[in-house]
Amino acid sequence: MKKAFPILGLVTAVLLSYALYEALVVAPREQTMGDVQRIFYYHVPSAWTAFLLFFLNFVASVQYLVRRDPKTDRAANWVLVAVAGLSCVAALVVKLVPDLMQALPQGVEVSSIASTGPIVAIIYFLMRRYFSVEAVDALAVTTAEVGVVFCTVVLVTGPLWARPVWGIWWTWDVRLTSTLVLWLIYVSYLVLRRFSSSGQTPVLAAALAIFGALDVPLVYFSIWIFRTQHPQPVIGGGGSIDPRMLHVLLLNWLAFSCFAFLVCWSRYRLERATREIEETLALEALLEPRNALR
């Protein structure tokens, strides 16, 4: 495993520089916006990565709380299986009833309804299989921290693009505001982790992450009522995109994902090592008085 780290680092570096070249040179110039549109190749992949990391943080937080008790652990497993099954059933029902099919919002497809539940379940069970309870908490720290970094990139590159294109730095539109609130919630999550006493940090932080996850749909819905100014999502939404641009975008996303994975990996190892050292020191402190008595 340790050998894979530098190899992955090298692959990431190559991918990132190639993706940079593609984004700046190869990708076609946007007709109306001009070169400023190229920031899109950083903005969108960062956003996807940040949301993915926050989602992983939510799964890890739920898992940390649930797995402390075998009873809730078993119940959660069944809930996950039920979620996977239900989403397939829901997709089938939508497919069979034409009225529902028509009522689907733009960009939502039957296949995405069918795959959401199973994907969530697979992520949950993979995490459960490969991470112990303590490791899941370390994973939660890692994903929250790296997620905040990527979310910051999104919030910085967004206004940089908006100023020349919209003529304003910021607007209280649904996507912008929800992303900002998500960022705020996760910053408060990190502050809580920093300030709470060590033994209780994981539980309190996990509870806050769940509250944050409850909050985000409400934030989105409440601001949705104001007319949205953000461009429609170009993939699976109302917008359309040149296939060459899509190619560059996906390449950049791959590079960013590799980069995020690399950073997460090293942060995770650092977190585990820190905890191991803390435990050893605590153990030594416990043993010391006995040694002194001898």
Binding site: V187, L192, S196
Partner: peptide, 20 residues
């Protein structure tokens, strides 16, 4: 309650969640 500087902590946790 379980954190250092708890008086500051409450608004930091409460305000982001209360936004909607």
């Amino acid at each position: 309650l379980r954190t250092r500087s708890r008086e500051i902590m409450l608004p930091l946790l409460l305000f982001p969640i209360t936004i909607p």
